[in-house]
């Protein structure tokens, strides 16, 4: 009995540690006061101010577009990589390929960001594309990062699935493409969807890589937020934070739901 109570206290403290700052942020988003850490009564005025702030809204829309594009590209690249790693057997260079795919997961973001910046600059000098830094380069950079996550998720999903399933399909008259379409794809669809959501969230959150590879035309929401901070905090930032917390929470919840273990 006493042990149960101690455990509950420990759990409560742990959750408080994790969630108190976020809850505080959300709570102050509804404060009427001009100082973002001072309670001035309930109000939605900062949400209204946020909606009226064209710069922020534009940045948010750009962020959403980049996130969607980057996540889609990441699913294509990462899905193919995960499939190759799980199903192609021990091909030449498999270990190196696996390590390189996973590199963005372990490399510090400043390193990833800097190296991508160097690559984009070199590419522009060599073939003239991508021209300058902006939304395109941010999208490509985020797709690189997201592909690593998608590859891991898809590979894990395929590793769980019986590899004779595709053979069984072919045995029953399916060409390899039909077998992929009717058996493999439905099997990894939840992993692809979850991977898309993860990549989307990563892109929406990222400020480090984006700061390296974005230009004047590529101000994403986190970058806009950061520059606002330098000029001084307003409760608009709190409101924005609350909206982002809500969005990211929904995304991660959906991803967890899609990746939940199934019977059989």
């Amino acid at each position: 009995m006493r042990r149960g109570r101690a455990l509950r206290w420990a759990m409560g403290l742990g959750f408080a540690f994790l969630w108190a700052p976020i809850l505080l942020l959300v709570a102050y988003a509804f404060s009427a006061d001009r100082i973002p850490y001072q309670w001035g009564g309930f109000s939605l005025r900062w949400f209204a101010a946020l909606a009226a702030n064209e710069r922020l809204v534009e940045a948010a829309l750009l962020s959403l577009r980049i996130a969607a594009g980057a996540a889609s590209l990441a699913v294509l690249l990462g899905g193919a990589a995960g499939w190759a790693l799980a199903r192609f057997g021990p091909f030449r260079g498999r270990a190196v390929f696996g390590a390189l795919i996973g590199a963005p997961l372990v490399l510090p973001e400043v390193v990833t960001g800097l190296s991508l910046l160097l690559l984009f600059v070199a590419l522009e000098a060599a073939i003239g594309w991508p021209a300058g830094r902006g939304a395109t380069t941010v999208l490509l950079a985020h797709a690189t990062l997201g592909a690593a996550f998608v590859a891991v998720v898809v590979q894990a999903r395929l590793a769980d699935a019986d590899r004779t399933l595709e053979e069984a399909a072919m045995d029953l008259g399916a060409t390899p493409w039909t077998a992929f379409r009717t058996v493999t794809l439905p099997l990894i669809a939840p992993a692809l969807a979850a991977g898309w959501l993860l990549a989307f969230t990563l892109s929406l959150d990222d400020v480090v890589i984006a700061s390296f590879v974005s230009g004047p035309a590529g101000t994403t929401l986190p970058i806009a937020l950061f520059s606002m901070l330098r000029l001084g905090l307003t409760p608009e930032v709190n409101a924005l934070g609350a909206v982002v917390v809500l969005g990211v929470g929904l995304m991660l919840g959906l991803a967890a739901l899609l990746l939940r273990p199934r019977r059989g």
Binding site: D162, T164, L165, E167, A168, A169, M170, A174, V183, L187
Partner: peptide, 17 residues
């Protein structure tokens, strides 16, 4: 395999989940 009039029952049964 998809063009052979031969079918196989797999050890794992390989039922499509």
């Amino acid at each position: 395999p998809w063009a052979r009039p031969v079918n196989m029952m797999f050890q794992s049964y390989a039922l499509f989940p």
